[in-house]
Structures are given as C-alpha cells and as structure tokens.
Computed example of a mutant assay.
Amino acid sequence: MPTIPFFDGHNDTLLKLLEAEGDPTQLFMDGMDKADIDLPRARAAGMAGGFFAIFPPPLKGNLGSVVAGAGNNRGGLPPELGLADAQAVTLGMASILMRIERAGGVAICRDAAAVRAAIAQGTLASVLHIEGAEAIDTDFRALDVLYAAGLRSIGLVWSRANAFGTGVPFRYPSDADIGPGLSDAGKALVRECNDRGIMIDLSHLNAAGFRDVAAISDKPLVATHSNVHAISAHARNLVDWQLAAIAESQGVVGLNFATGFLRPDGKMRVDTEIEVMVRHIDALVEALGEDGVALGSDFDGAMVPAPIGDVTGVPKLLQALLDKGYGEALVRKIALENWLSMIERCIG
C-alpha cells in the first residue's frame, strides 16, 4: 500500500532547534539525531506538513523538570512569563522557521490554498502556531507583527496563567475545571483571532476558559493535541462535555502522542503500545464523527510510545488503524484531510 500522507497538528521542533548546538537550519535540512522531526525523516514518513509551534519555555529549568516538579504535578502552575522574555524567544523561533523556508525546507502557509499548493509541490507545509500567547501584548501590537510573519494559530495559554487566561496543570488524576475563565483581554483576543482568520487552539486551556471560547467564538472549536479523559484521566485531556461542544461546532481534536495523556495510569512511560493510541482514536471518532479526528503528535515536546519513536513511526499508527478495520478513506481523513478542512474553515 502506498504511503498515506499526514499533517501533524502540533510539534515543538522549533524549540528543539532553538536549544540545539549548531546551525538550526542546517540541522533541520540535513538531519538531527536529538529531534523527532527533521526534513529527511519527515519526507521519508510521508509528512505533508504541520502546525509548527512557538513555545516560550519556562525561565528556570527545562520543560521536563517543570512538568515533573512536585508543586506542578500536585496542581500548581509554573510562574507567569514576562512579555519581554516571551517575545525574545518567540522571535527567535519564528526566525528559525523563516530561515528554513528560505533554505527550501518548508513553506510558511497563510491559508488553505497555500497549504494545498505546498503539498502538491512536495514542500513541507508549515502553519505558524503559538503555544501560549505570552508574547502578545494586550494592545495586540505584537499580534500585528506576528500575523504579518505568518501566524495563523494561537493556543491562548500553555499550562500556566498569562494575561489572557489560565492553563491546566500536568496533574493526574484531575480534570480541567481549575481556575478562572478568560480575562477581558483574553475575550478580546478570541474576537480578534476570529476577525483575522487565526485558529484558536483549546489544548492546555482550563474548563472555564474553554467555555468562554465556546461562547464567544464563531469558528469551530479545535484542540490540536489532546486526548480522551475517559481513557486517561489527566487534566490535559477532554471530558465528555468538552468533546460534545467540539462536536456541536464541527471542530477537530488532534490525537496527542504523549504517553502520560494516553495511558490509563497516566504515567509517562516509553513502553506504551500503539493499541492505546487506537483506543483514543476509536473514542474520538465515536464522539466527534469521522470529520472531527486528526493527529497532533506533540513531537519534540513529549515522551512518545517507543513503537512510534519519532516522525518515521507515524505510518505504524496509520497501519494499525487499517488493521483495526478503518477503511483507507477514513484513515486518510484522520491523517490529512480533516486538518486541511479545518484550516480552510478557521483560517481561510
């Protein structure tokens, strides 16, 4: 069977490149052992494109240490990140993606037509995404600049609070019903995103903030990298009412490959089987329908199952769906077409 092309709803490869030793452009173009995605492996796997996230990381300690910290996994959140620090890191990662584009490694796509054109030409289609809006001031001046640079998707928060809303902790067992809803600035940012054609990502957002977005937004609800709380009771996963709201809006959820959000025991363990990923997809298809399920790997930002390993393992998941009895047409929807449809409806 020919390789099924896929579009990834979330990766943190730009952060990996920012922190790497050496020239980020060259590392991405030629291959990078310590990353989950680079251009040679993406092409070999059939990756057609994805949302490339800009994530302003914690100021003290690496991401893993923050997630595993005693205060955080008991329900605390990392401290807020200052505007200047967030903007410096955000500009650094945006610059990396632009340089990769100049080298011919990706095409930064500003609408669905550009995504489809890049895929048709065999170029990796990149949609610029921000995971946590700390770099955006409440007057939205930075948003003007980032939009001009190609920003077309925003996660209002990461798992901390900012000027716009509050995220959820990395806590198991728990749900997302933690903390207040969106601030006035957060509600204004939702409206601004709707007006400009910027997709809003609900992953990491708490329950009250989710409800605010659902009440304000006139676009489909999207969680680019989240899973099913009924299978893995992690605060980062979606409970039944959230899945119902996404379904009602004809939205999309991208399956997160992070083992702690997949496993029923909530543990970050690499010895996690593909079968549990299929269980989440089964549940998502049941809740959202065939048009509401996609992939959102979290590559380069999470521990993924050993049988997947990196981007070259995605075809194994797609084959597992075929082996389960999913028809090829549905697998192609989950792999690629549902994201293309969502980009067209949310971005234009």
Rank of each mutant, 00 (worst) to 15 (best):
K16G: 06
L17A: 09
L18C: 10
A20Y: 09
E21Y: 13
E21W: 12
E21P: 03
D33R: 15
P40D: 06
R41H: 12
R43H: 15
R43F: 14
A48Y: 13
P57F: 11
V66H: 05
V67C: 00
V67M: 07
G71C: 00
L81G: 01
G82Y: 09
A86N: 05
Q87P: 00
T90C: 03
A94V: 15
I96M: 00
R102Y: 07
A107V: 12
C109H: 08
C109I: 02
C109V: 02
R110Y: 10
R110N: 12
A113K: 15
V115G: 01
H129V: 08
E131S: 11
E134N: 14
A135R: 08
D139W: 00
A142R: 11
L143V: 06
Y147A: 06
Y147R: 05
W158S: 01
S159A: 08
A163N: 11
G167F: 06
D184I: 09
N194S: 05
D195M: 04
R196A: 03
L202T: 10
H204S: 02
L205W: 12
D212W: 12
V213E: 01
A214F: 06
P220C: 03
T224G: 04
H225S: 04
V228G: 02
A230W: 13
S232V: 09
R236S: 06
A244G: 06
F261C: 02
D271L: 02
V276Q: 06
V278D: 05
H280Y: 13
D282H: 14
V285N: 03
G289I: 15
G296E: 06
P305H: 13
G309D: 07
T312Y: 05
T312E: 10
V314G: 01
L318N: 02
A329K: 11
R332F: 04
W339E: 00
W339M: 00
L340D: 01
S341I: 08
